[in-house]
Each structure stands twice: as C-alpha cells, then as structure tokens.
Amino acid sequence: MIPERWLNLGVLTLLAAVPLVASLAGQPFTVTLATKIAIFALAATGLNIALGLGGLVSFGHAAFFGVGGYACGILASHARNYEPLSTWPWDIEGTTQMLTIWPIAVLLGGLAALVIGALSLRTSGIFFIMITLAFAQMLYYFAISWPTYGGEDGLPFYLRGDFPGLNTMDPIQFFGICFALLLAALFTFHRLHRARFGLSLEAARQNPERLRSLGIRPFHVRLLAFVISGMITALAGALYADLNRFVSPAMLSWHLSGELIVLIVLGGVGRLCGPVVGAAAYFLLEHWAGAASEYWQFWFGLLLLGVVLFARGGIVGALAKDHTHD
C-alpha cells in the first residue's frame, strides 16, 4: 500500500519516461501507443468529472469525442483543399492551426454537452444512461448518413495540424503536446475536486435534497459539470483525429462510450489518475493480448466481469491506501 499521491506521480513519470526512452531507442510504435494512452486518459478524465465526481453515468461521451474529432477533421480538410467552409454570410476558412482548432472543438463539444445535458439531466438513473446513449447514437447515424464529410467511410486529412515551433509529425513531439494537455486536464480535475464547485457536485451525488436546502440547485451544478466534462472529452477527440489523421463515425459509436467508462472503472472511479492507469492497462492489454489471440475481447469481457463482480475500487483503489472516495 502506497499513498495515492506517490502512485500518481509514479504513473505520470512512467507515462512520460517510456516514450522518451523509446524515442531515443528508435521505437516510434511505442511512442504512438503512449500517445494513444495519453489521449484516451484525457477523454476519460473528462468523463471522470461527470461520472466520478457527479455520479452521472453518461453512456454517450463518444458524442463529444466525435464532435471534437469531426471539428478537427473538417477544419483541416477544408484548409488542405483550400475550400472555404462557407462563403455566406461570412467567409469562414478551414485551418490547420491546432491553437485555433482546439478552442473550436472544445466550444462545439461544450455546446453539444449543454444541449444533451439540459435534456437528459431532467431524468436520472436508468433513464439518464439510456438517453445519453440515444443522443450519442443520433450523432453516430447522422455522421453515417451525411455524405459531405465521408459518411460511413470517414474523412482522411493526411497531415496533422500545426503547432508553432513544433513538428507535429514527429511522434515524440506530438506525444509531448498530448501529455501536456493531459496534465492540464488532470490539474483542472484536481482543482475542481477541491473547489466549492466540486464539493457541491459531490453533494449533488450523495444528497441532492440537502444541497437544495443549502440554496444550490443540483441541476445547475450537474449541467455545468456535464459541459466541462464534454469539453475535455472533445479536446481529446480533436487530438485523436490528429493522431490518426482520420475521423470516422467509429469515434461516435456506443462502443467507444462503453470503453471510456471501462477505462475509468479499471483505474478507479473518481480517482485523479484512475483514467490514466485504466487507459494504460486497457491499451497494453489490447496490445499484448490482441497479438496473442484474435478473440482477446472475449477474455477481456470475462476479466471485466470479474472486476465488476468481485474487485471493486479499480487498480488505484487496490494499490493506494488512502480511501478518499468510497
């Protein structure tokens, strides 16, 4: 048993050190794997705000991931083809600048979360799970049947976005960008958790009536948490699109929503580094077990079933001794 703080430090150091060493040793694949882990950890950190702190089991976070991804893909492909996005009423050009793409992706993700959240937070429990899933599925089918941006085939855009002073096509430099954003999101999560907002969010989960009697409306707190959560996940979506230089409806699929929840639960619900540990465990398992068996998801399903039924608290919960969240 080790203090959670040291565990977090160790995990993040490891996640930064392994790709650095791999890059020096000429192993770009390992760097890409670490980048994928960092991006999914970022997406799951977004979900962790809604799910871990607020207890809002959103089964539709793929919606925000996909919105971020498509924002990035659409802007980039317009810029590469020198086609303006629209000519009326204003001229809007595409862009490949990450510093422009990110705010747009985050804003659109937040907007989607505001609409979906405002509708689905009117309900709770099983209803909330089903409705978030249904809205994500709505965007999924829309992306499939809208032919302008590739429809079912997806949209390739060949080059990553540009970042001032960096070569984003170099795996280790792109990893650096993703890792820095992950750290920023973890810092945000940490500060939110300790702030008045985070406390009222946890209170909204544990005892909404008492929170209401204190003069704070649970609906507003939850909606704000849902929007922040969607924004962070959308940012991760934009990075994932850049990693693959490709977006497709798969980024919006319900399977991805399920995976994000799995990452959090594997790592530890509501834990700061739960998503990071969960993402690392999941993708390393996918890498190794996927190489051993084509049907590795069968065994992963059994493992997950065992974790849910018999081992609660996730990996961080099993390793760290201070139970801040139970």
Partner: peptide
C-alpha cells in the same frame, strides 16, 4: 447502475 452497465457491457463482449 454503473456496475450493471459495466457487467452487461462485459457480457456483450
């Protein structure tokens, strides 16, 4: 509900 979602998601896999 979170445990139910996860366990039945695992069953799907």
């Amino acid at each position: 509900h979170l445990d139910q979602v996860l366990a039945t998601f695992a069953l799907i896999l």
